[in-house]
Structures are given as C-alpha cells and as structure tokens.
Design a protein around this nucleic acid. Structure first.
Lengths: 166, 166
DNA sequence: TATTGTTATACTCTATAACTATA
DNA sequence: TATAGTTATAGAGTATAACAATA
C-alpha cells in the first residue's frame, strides 16, 4: 500500500464527528439552560418527535443508553410536562412514552435558540452546505441501530485489519 | 410564522450530530480497545496530525477540554510513545506536543480498524455521500473555535429568540 | 504578578445489581 | 421463568482549586 493510498483511505469521519459534536454540545449547554433543558433532553425530544411514541426500552435502544438512565431522563422531562408515560394496554409492563404539545413547543423554542449556536459552530459552512449536512445526518441517524451480533462481526473484521497492518 | 415555516427552519443538526457521534463512539470503543486506545485518544492524535505540533494549552483550546484533562490524556499517549512533550526553547514554561512516528503509525492502524465501524454506523449513506460528509466535517472542524466573547454574544441572541417565541 | 503545566479533590455522568410488577 | 421499569450504589469521566516552575 503506497503512502498516498494510506492518506486517501484511512482518514475517517469518527474523530471529526465526535470533535464537532463536543463543540456543539458545550455551546448548546449555556443556551439551553434558561429553558431548563440539557443537550441530552433535546436529543430525546428530537427522537420522540421524529420517530414517534415508543417504549422506554425502545428509547434506550435508539439512544444507545442504559435503561436506568432513560428513567432519570424521562423523570426530568415528565416533571416539566414535556413527555407523557402511559401504561400500554397490550402489555401493562410497558410505558408508552410520547411527546406532549408542551414538549413539541419547547423543542421548537430550543431549536430556535440553538440557531445561533449552529451559526457559530458551523460557521465555515454556507447555507447550502449546512442543508446538505443536515440531510446526511438525518438519513444516517434514521437507520436502525445495529444489533449486537453485527457489532461483534464488525469488531472481528477490524481486528483482522489491525493484524494485517502490523 | 406559519407552521410550515417552523417545520422548515427550526430543525437543527445539533441533536443529530450528538446522536450520531454517540453511536460512533460506543462502537469505536470495542474496536480501539485492542490497540490500547480510547476514542478521545484518537481525537487528540487526529488533531495533532491535522494541525501539527502545539502547546498543551493550545490542545486544550482546540479540544475544548480542561487543561487538567489534557495532562492525563497526554500521559497515556506519551507512555505508549505515541506523542512527545518537549520544553519550548522560547518559553520554557511551555510543552510542545508532537506526534511521533509510532503515533502516526498507530493512528493509521486505528483508522483502518475503524473502517468497519463507519460502514456500520453510516450504513445508510453511499460512498459518495460519505465523502461529502467527511469533507463537510473536515471543513467545519478546521474553523478556529470561537472565543468566549463570541459565545456570550451568541447566548444573548438565543435568549432574545426564546423570549420572542414565547 | 501572570502564565504553563501539574497534582489533589469534588462533582457529575454512566453502568451494574437487586427489587417490584406484570407476562 | 422472563421482561419492563425502578431504585440504590459503585465506577469512570470531568471540572475546580491549590501548587511549582518560568516569564
């Protein structure tokens, strides 16, 4: 493998994604504080709006978050009347979580407030490029999260790749 | 403002970015573990490669990370011989941090290993779209982080926006 | 006196384990 | 017996404060 090829093929988006997300999150915190929200609340509300009602377990899976953490998250949101927990009629163990009208409104307010943060963090991109970015992110995140089996297979491939490279 | 306009203008990339970055990070952890790296190490190495040598304070600023945290991060990386700390000749208080050859090699290995993670997390996007995403992220992150003054101004604008919306 | 880096410490976030209720 | 959700608790991650060396 030539050095040029290495340059071309081995630069990945992962680190950039994390780096950009961190900057966005740090700036967002101060803007969201007056609304009584934290970035993770916004993520949860966004998922509920975009994907619709779901069980707490479903939410945990989607957010790749531990179930115990979802409890606390929903406690916050429910205390503010932004989401609702209802027992599922089909399976009374389940709680169906849904966005309330108040929650949808608050989410809109938050996104409006975050416009300036986005202007700042994505300052290097013009309007068209931001639209493209939003579209790509939207589609990438709408994919169902991979199963554990897939993740394991993925780890295997990566390990082989590392061995070969050494 | 009409409901349609609200739909159009108030959907922001922040939550999506954080959501996608989290999924990427969780998957990356297992793949990077055999290399003795954690996602944040990779971010630091990536920044050092892309932006070149810098002081610890510079690194803290770039990574939007507390200085005390940078110390621990660099301790890890230096113990593995992936980065080097040298006293600056001009200002002996400063440590100039630079990527070693070993570090550059390890970074390449890591990025290779992460290819399968990216395939999984960005499964909904085709090759072209991933290139576009990489390009957008690359340009967005190469922008200098905003100063505190700018962040404060940004918060003000956001607050005004919230008031108006209520 | 101010700044760079370090150490010690407290705080927050996240995950693991045991419990209640439904199935 | 297994699953959805909850609570209590321990471990990891992150930030705040005091300190040493240099400017």
């Amino acid at each position: 493998m030539s050095p040029d090829q290495v340059e071309q093929t081995e630069r990945r988006s992962g680190a950039l994604l994390e780096y950009l997300a961190r900057r966005m999150r740090l700036r967002s915190e101060s803007v969201l504080a007056p609304l009584g929200l934290r970035p993770r609340h916004l993520v949860a509300l966004t998922v509920l709006r975009d994907a619709g009602d779901m069980s707490q377990q479903g939410l945990a899976g989607t957010l790749q978050l531990d179930g115990t953490n979802v409890v606390g998250l929903l406690n916050d949101l429910e205390a503010d009347g932004l989401v609702e927990r209802r027992r599922s009629p089909e399976d009374r163990r389940r709680h169906v979580v849904s966005l309330t009208q108040t929650g949808a409104k608050r989410l809109n307010e938050a996104e409006c407030a975050l416009a300036s943060v986005e202007d700042e963090v994505l300052g290097a991109l013009n309007e068209n490029e931001r639209d493209t970015l939003y579209d790509l992110l939207r589609r990438a995140t709408s994919e169902v999260p991979a199963t554990c089996a897939e993740a394991a297979a993925c780890a295997e491939v990566a390990a082989a790749c590392t061995e070969e490279d050494r």
